[in-house]
Amino acid sequence: MDAERIGFFLPEEKKEEKHAADKEKTYELIIVGGGPAGLTAAVYSARKAIDTLLLTKDIGGQILLTQEVENYMGYQYIGGKELIEKFKQHVQRFPVVMKEKTEVVRITNDEKTFTVETRDGESYHAKTVIIAAGKRPRPLNAKGEKELVGKGVTYCSVCDAPLFSGQNVAVIGGGNSGLTAVVDLIKIAKKIYLIESFPSLRADAVLVEKAERSDKVEKFLGYEVLEVLGRGRVENIKIKPKQKDETKTLPVTGVLIEIGLIPNSYLAKDLVKLNDFQEILVDCACRTSVPGVFAAGDVTTVPEKQIVVAAGEGAKAALSCYNYLLGLR
């Protein structure tokens, strides 16, 4: 722990909710997701006076796990948490009903309305939906991995890295997230095995240099993970070079998986068309295969998963939705 580096984060400013989410009424629009796409869509829909409900697990989405943002226009540098707070305050200027800590699990339709079901078993109704549900960490799908989640296997290096003080750990993934985890762990772990299935690292040079300078870090490039082993907790990881038939077992207590993200499209998988990567297919106006259902941001086929792109797509989705609602009136 290094409190000086971490600092002290202030609580979010709470505003009294003017209106609670109403299960009985039919909203004009339900936005699913509270990342940059969903929040921007909320601002645009509110400015068009669309009666909107926003349902989300958290406010900020992936930015919650981003320390600093250096490519959002207007800010040369801004902390992830600070940017989220600004987004949230912007939405709160408008009469959008925002329900947090609410995970949407399914969206279905009948002739006129869409029903949005949550993990808590509640249902909300609307004439249109914007899906801006973002992405979640991609699992390795290695043997033993699922059973050992929370017992040494983690997908949130930012959260859990400090728990592996003085221990041997494996970081899976040679991109920026993987190398950021490695660099953070150099200060706390005893030994770090960096495992990447490609023959080279894809992370930014500055991160790679930092990792390579430490004698705690041992790289296994071109290796795949066969199995995570352990009884009740992670004890070993079994890896294999892609080109050869030999395995290696590394003694580790932590496996930090940073191999990218997969779209949260499962909630609409029976409703709209997806591509092979499980992304929701959208046209240039954010329309999905179902009229009245729009999608924006990282959950869609739109290339380049960036905050600024997601925000722009959120705006487009809300404006497309507005035009669609005009047609219904």
Binding site: K151, G152, G166, R233
Partner: peptide, 29 residues
Amino acid sequence: ESSEFPHLVNKYGVFAVPKVIINESIQFE
């Protein structure tokens, strides 16, 4: 705060946070 009390992290097998322990017997992440 986990990094301040590594012996407790070890005792309760804290590998992911938040981890909640109630009366030693109930545990969940």
